[in-house]
């Protein structure tokens, strides 16, 4: 106890205290942070259940029979793919009236999303959810995907899909967390600011090539840490934090050795 009291005024004491405080806060947060709400898994996947879910979760903005209101567009004919994309990525139901619906932990389960999608699809024909084979990256050609991606996608999503800014707070999201199905659906339906790349613009094979290219980007960078794949700006920050920082530290150390 005496040793502890004596080291209270040690010059590293504030640093250690700060580290402990951060750890403590982190632990408390981890224990108390709200978990994503999980709805019960429905056993039946049919249109009626989908309609019920739609009325509960979506109709405030999209209308009781998906005909649209002043607050949200009509969904008749948008197809299952669009609904599935919006719901499984958590973009719908929308959190707030922001410049753009943000992806967040999904509010409905995958099965429920399928049910709502089935209901919307029953109201009018539209793009359907792609099959597993359509989105299988191992069947795609990553080199061709690279060509397609950089010609059609990179100007908003960045060369490797790290995301980019659009006007007035809108943005093209980073693609590193998106599933193959969701990427395919986004191309097919053009959510929010994104243009539609229908099967005449990008053939299903080309879409699969894009997915293959994006999955290839999830391999570790052969050069080491990817620094967020943001290119020169993050390199510029790290060169000062690590390079110049360490070297000035070394210079101070050398300068302090003799004087």
């Amino acid at each position: 106890m005496k040793a502890l009291a004596a080291s209270r005024r040690h010059r590293f004491a504030p640093v250690i205290l700060m580290a402990l405080a951060l750890l403590f806060t982190g632990a408390i947060y981890a224990a108390l942070a709200p978990n994503a709400a999980q709805a019960d898994t429905a056993s039946a996947t049919d249109i009626a259940e989908g309609e019920r879910l739609f009325i509960t979760n979506c109709s405030t903005c999209h209308g009781m029979s998906a005909q649209g209101t002043a607050d949200g567009p009509a969904l008749i004919g948008v197809g299952a793919a669009a609904v599935h994309f919006q719901v499984v990525t958590g973009r719908m139901p929308m959190a707030a009236n922001a410049p753009q619906a943000e992806a967040k932990p999904p509010q409905l389960t995958g099965e429920q999303a399928q049910q709502i999608a089935a209901y919307i699809a029953s109201l009018g024909a539209g793009p359907s959810i792609p099959s597993d084979q359509q989105v299988d990256p191992t069947l795609g050609d990553a080199a061709n995907g690279m060509q397609v991606f950089r010609t059609n996608c990179a100007m908003c999503h960045n060369a490797v899909g790290a995301g980019g800014a659009l006007s007035e707070g809108k943005y093209a999201p980073a693609l590193d967390g998106a599933t193959a199905t969701v990427i395919y659906e986004a191309m097919l339906t053009g959510p929010q600011s994104m243009p539609v790349f229908n099967d005449a613009t990008l053939t299903p094979d080309e879409k699969r090539d894009v997915i293959a290219y994006l999955m290839e980007q999830r391999q570790p960078n052969p050069g080491g840490l990817d620094l967020g794949s943001f290119g020169s700006v993050s390199e510029g920050i790290w060169v000062f934090v690590v390079g110049i920082g360490l070297l000035i530290g070394a210079a101070v150390w050398i300068g302090a050795r003799s004087s």
Binding site: M155, N158, G163, G164, G231, S232, V233, E235
Partner: peptide
Amino acid sequence: LVSAGAQPDWYML
């Protein structure tokens, strides 16, 4: 072609 987030090295930024 040009991709989003295209910037030069820091000294040209």
